[in-house]
């Protein structure tokens, strides 16, 4: 950060006034108001009553997405018009880096919850250690194993048997998604997911080398493969969820195992979807717009960082959610 050449400090481009921020805010606020109302209708509302929550949500989302589209289009056009100084480009790099860092911390919260539950809460509920005194009083007979195949509530006879500390029925799954049988390892979806995602990180890197060499054909080809692999991952993930819900009885209501499983893999899947969309847009920019050169391709580079980031998160998920 100490390189201070004079070209870096050429007159800085401060953008014209812009409607983007206000439009994005309108879209965002409508979306969250709509989303919150949808959930309230679901939980507290009268099922027969018609509400406009979904309409508000979709109007907001449409507005928000349209604004983001316009925003990125503006940024891309400014770059192509040569308005971005070396210094501004560095600001975009820093922005993307710290954005990814904030995403890391978001996953950190859910991983932290997983570790806390697995290493401390589970044993305590089963009567171990200083936190274990409540086992006799509230959850007699509960034994802790991970994945948790019997919730404390079930151990004492279901939701009606224990009215304290109780906010719903938690019905545990009949089968966990952990690695079970080495003989039929090829049936184990998470392994295929891992292979697909790791490969996609590699293909993304090959695409990056392509654009660095100025080879658009190579870039387009390998980026297409990356996006397809991303879509395959999402399909596999969908299959796994379907299997979990329909065959294994593993649902969001299945106690803490289901909660942590779906929240971690679900948010990861959502991030894969976002990363895939980002890469797809870069692909379209290259194929249709003939954009990106060997020296100027930050839109792709930022998306590829994001892609590698979701890949790393998956490695941790694979380790701590499926294997260990």
């Amino acid at each position: 950060m100490t390189s201070q050449t004079s070209t870096e400090y050429e007159k800085y481009y401060v953008p014209e006034k812009s409607r983007l921020a206000v439009c994005a805010t309108i879209g965002l606020i409508l979306s969250i108001y709509g989303a919150a109302s949808i959930m309230n209708d679901m939980t507290f509302g009268d099922p027969g009553e018609a509400t406009s929550s979904w309409t508000i949500f979709w109007v907001g989302m449409f507005f928000f997405m349209a604004t983001l589209f316009a925003w990125f289009r503006t940024a891309i056009r400014e770059n192509i018009a040569g308005m971005n100084s070396a210094q501004l480009k560095k600001s975009y790099v820093l922005g993307m880096f710290w954005f990814i860092f904030s995403e890391v911390m978001f996953f950190f919260a859910f991983f932290g919850a997983l570790f806390y539950v697995r290493n401390l809460v589970g044993p305590w509920l089963a009567g171990e250690g200083e936190g274990g005194r409540m086992n006799d009083l509230l959850w007699p007979g509960f034994e802790y194993v991970w994945p948790m195949m019997q919730t404390p509530q079930e151990a004492v006879g279901g939701a009606s048997a224990q009215l304290m500390a109780n906010n719903g029925a938690f019905v545990s799954p009949n089968t966990s998604l952990s690695f079970a049988d080495a003989a039929v390892w090829w049936h184990w979806l998470p392994m295929w997911n891992t292979l697909v995602l790791l490969t996609s990180s590699l293909t993304c890197h090959i695409a990056h080398m392509g654009i660095l060499a100025g080879d658009r054909k190579k870039f387009n080809l390998w980026l297409t493969i990356t996006v397809v692999l991303g879509i395959i991952f999402l399909c596999l993930q969908y299959m796994e969820y379907h299997e979990a819900y329909v065959e294994y009885g593993l649902t969001l209501n299945a106690g803490i195992y289901g909660s942590t499983f779906f929240m971690l893999t679900g948010f990861h899947g959502f991030h894969v979807f976002m990363g895939m969309t980002m890469l797809l847009i870069q692909l379209l920019r290259s194929v249709i717009g003939k954009q990106f050169t060997a020296t100027d391709h930050f839109g792709f580079e930022a998306s590829s960082w994001y892609w590698h980031f979701v890949d790393v998160v998956w490695v941790f998920l694979f380790l701590f959610v499926y294997i260990l």
Binding site: M39, M42, T43, F106, F108, A109, F110, A113, Y116, V117, V121, G122, W124, L125, M134, L138, W139, M148, T151, P152, Q153, A159, Q162, A165, N166, N167, G168, F170, T251, L252, N253, G255, I256, Y257, G258, S259, T260, F262, M263
Partner: peptide, 24 residues
């Protein structure tokens, strides 16, 4: 992350903060 877990507990039946489901 914390408020998302709350949201899920309130509306979608997770048990992050409920001992009955193995949370805390």
């Amino acid at each position: 992350g914390a408020v998302t877990m709350m949201l899920m507990d309130v509306h979608f039946g997770t048990s992050f903060f409920s001992a009955a489901g193995g949370g805390d």
